[in-house]
Design a protein around this nucleic acid. Structure first.
Lengths: 147, 147
DNA sequence: GTGCTTGCAAATCGTTTGCAATAGC
DNA sequence: GCTATTGCAAACGATTTGCAAGCAC
């Protein structure tokens, strides 16, 4: 299982003209398995367990490489850290200002069409991000915050 | 002219329960006059000419205060710096990855309705930002960049 | 063996914090 | 006069850079 997945990832990277080093495969595998928009630190901490020699520089290099090749998104919604997302399909994001959690907001067909209408302008758009901030469902219902 | 504008800004801040200190008035005046989504550094450099004692800490404090009171937006589109915007009306932004310029994208009535449709979800949304990145009109036509 | 990739250490730089001096109601 | 605000200096922390060692074709 894990082995065939790794082979798929190697092929996936190779198809995108990215040499599939151990580190790169591990990072892409992590991103695909953890759709939590991890920070560089989170990726680094987790993967360091299996790859003790891993350097944070390599994580930065790899994520920059992935995003240049369009197989990873760099999310700028969180002013504290960059966040990374291997889901490059059309969706929005919601950052909870109470718990800091970053949620995906998947869009209906109607909403995707609406977004389509919003991605036309005089400039050449290469990337669009729809970012919401506020208080997430969990934090509201659990009333973990004070006004 | 300048004097009456300053008085208006003092009143504007007072109406929002913000004590109108010299620095705060100057920063708000700058933001209203320069709708270029300036960084903290740009605001600081410019205002330092007239207020030599100004501290960058005060610029940070003031902008944080303004955004807490909802009279200024903190834009997170540019991963390099926070950007500030005194135009809190509904509009999108475009960051040119060639020249670094941050442009306003004003929306048609239709587009505003489309965005309205996109700002409904299970969480409590307090702020929404629609961010585009790519190559701006000027950089495309002047072919200042290489592929 | 040549060039790409990695990883260490240091540098960089935007932002935050602690605290004493100051200003404004 | 009292409290809110300012400004300095230091700390912090995310990201970048330079470079030497290692790896893969």
């Amino acid at each position: 299982m894990a082995e065939s997945r790794e082979i798929n990832i190697r092929e996936f990277l190779a198809n995108h003209h990215i040499r599939p080093s151990q580190q790169r495969v591990a990072i892409m595998e992590y991103l695909l398995a953890n759709k939590t928009h991890p920070t560089v630190d989170q990726i680094f901490e987790q993967l360091s367990v299996d790859i003790p020699s891993l350097s944070k520089t390599t994580v930065y290099n790899t994520l920059t490489l992935f995003s240049r090749h369009g197989i990873t998104l760099v999310l700028t919604i969180d002013p504290r850290n960059l966040r990374f997302d291997s889901d490059t399909s059309t969706h929005a994001h919601f950052l909870c200002e109470v718990c800091g959690e970053l949620h995906d907001i998947f869009l209906s067909k109607e909403q995707k069409e609406a977004l389509q209408l919003l991605t036309r302008c005089e400039h050449q758009i290469l990337d669009t991000q729809l970012n919401h901030k506020g208080v997430c469902k969990e934090c509201r219902t659990h009333a973990r915050y004070q006004v």
